[in-house]
Design a protein around this nucleic acid. Structure first.
Length: 428
DNA sequence: TCTGGGGTCCTAGGACCC
DNA sequence: TCTGGGGTCCTAGGACCC
């Protein structure tokens, strides 16, 4: 029988911000989405004050600040770096780790039950080491399936069945499990979102236990095989495997809201060129070529009183490519086609689709350029930017003054990723 | 003034094939 | 009155996750 552990960092972004600034230790703190838009993470203190997840910051700012809440812009290079360190530590506890998201990893613990006195104690050692080495709090959920380990993690966080942040279902009796699951809302289950939860409620299924004991065939017919699989996982039958090697992306997207509304095509071109540059870099890192490009632009959907417009066009390429210049050229063509003067644009995005690995490239019959030379150029570009920082070398089309880039008014230093921003320790 | 970004999977339906 | 059977592929839309 497989055994999964799900390790999840508590209030991850907020905790990262507190890590290098001890004065924030007891401060209610929130982290904002790109463009300083919405609350996407809250420290325990901010949660205790009732700051809602996802709230637009401009709406709640005044009240929150009055109560001492401090807001930070998202600092993804910091979070990504800390995340990698957490994974490093976790790799010391299991040979099989799946990095599920920036703040969650699944571990296989099969066989450990024979060696360890009990898995909950092992979970405690994981918690202790992450706390000692990184200063972060994590919770550990353990179960015979991924879905159950997720649920165990939920219980550990809410202190439902776990003691001190660890909850192990593998040693919980069937009766105790049934009793516990009767107290948890069905919406807490991994894979049951708002819509499905509502439909289940209409069928009289309110708790995890009711879903677990529901008629799987009926659920399959009324919903889908996905939810049926969830039921089997809740019953302890493992249907989802550990994915240790992240599969290649099937599409790469890059989009941002602007810090101000844009009306000129030239400004939109700068944004589209910038998004394309970063998407194409990701594409090359994955060793793939894009077979199609999509560009979209839109006005601010929240402003009902101004003229609205949005348009997206996808263009298949005659030959797949990873060359930023070629991709940008096509993106500009699409932009030219969908751009309408007279609107105030709020957001643009690009997508790279139909990705194929380099080795499966189907050359065009009419190809004349030397592909290797072009590839070398992109390689040099990526190496320089990888070594000296993003946009050390950039395309002129990405813009120089770039007055439209997203707002990041409260950005913390790159504590672990920029030499000039390393924290200083002053000895006296 | 101000409302995020980036993904995956499944299903239904239409077009097409023999 | 009555109109087959068995498939594949693609796309759009909807659900979910973080």
């Amino acid at each position: 029988m497989p055994i999964f552990a799900l390790v999840d960092c508590n209030n991850f972004y907020a905790s990262c911000e507190k890590l290098f600034d001890p004065t924030l230790r007891a401060t209610p703190l929130v982290v904002l989405s790109n463009n300083d838009g919405c609350v996407v993470a809250r420290s325990a203190e901010a949660k205790a004050l009732g700051i809602p997840m996802g709230a637009p910051w401009f709406q709640i700012r005044e009240g929150a600040e009055r109560r001492g809440v401090v807001a930070y812009s998202s600092n993804y290079s910091l979070y990504a770096d800390i995340s990698n360190r957490v994974v490093q530590v976790l790799s010391g506890f299991s040979p099989n780790v799946e990095v599920y998201s920036i703040d969650e990893s699944f571990l296989r613990l099969d066989g450990f039950a024979g060696v360890e006195r009990d898995l909950a104690a092992y979970g405690q050692r994981i918690r202790q080491r992450v706390a000692d080495w990184l200063g972060l709090a994590v919770c550990v959920g353990i179960g015979p399936t991924k879905t159950l380990s997720k649920l165990a993690n939920h219980c550990a966080k809410k202190n439902l069945a776990g003691i001190d942040g660890v909850c192990d279902f593998t040693t919980t009796s069937e009766t105790a499990l049934a009793q516990l699951f009767s107290t948890i809302e069905v919406g807490e289950v991994w894979g049951v979102g708002r819509k499905i939860a509502r439909r289940l409620e209409e069928m009289g299924i309110h708790t995890v236990e009711q879903l677990r004991t529901a008629d799987a065939d009926l659920i399959r017919r009324r919903f889908s095989v996905v939810l049926e699989r969830t039921i089997r996982e809740l019953r302890g039958l493992s249907c989802l495997e550990l994915e240790e090697v992240a599969p290649d992306k099937q599409q790469i997207m890059s989009s941002r809201s602007f810090s101000r509304l844009l009306t000129e095509r030239a400004d939109l071109e700068e944004a589209v060129a910038s998004y394309m540059a970063s998407a194409a870099e990701k594409l090359r890192r994955q060793g793939c070529l894009a077979g199609a490009v999509q560009v979209y632009i839109r006005t601010n959907v929240f402003k009902a009183d101004v003229p609205q417009y949005q348009q997206a066009v996808t263009l298949p390429l005659s030959a797949p490519t990873d060359d930023t210049r070629v991709l940008t050229r096509w993106a500009f063509r699409i932009l030219k086609r969908i751009y309408r003067p007279g609107y105030a644009y709020h957001k643009a995005g690009i997508m790279l689709l139909d990705l194929v690995p380099l080795g499966q490239r189907q050359p065009s019959l009419f190809e004349t350029e030397d592909g290797n030379r072009l590839r070398a150029l992109m390689q040099v570009l990526d190496e320089i930017n990888g070594r000296y920082g993003r946009r050390t070398l950039q395309f002129a089309s990405e813009g120089i003054t770039r007055t439209w880039t997203m707002r990041r008014d409260r950005l913390s230093p790159g504590y672990t990723t920029r030499w000039e921003e390393l924290p200083k320790v002053l000895a006296r």
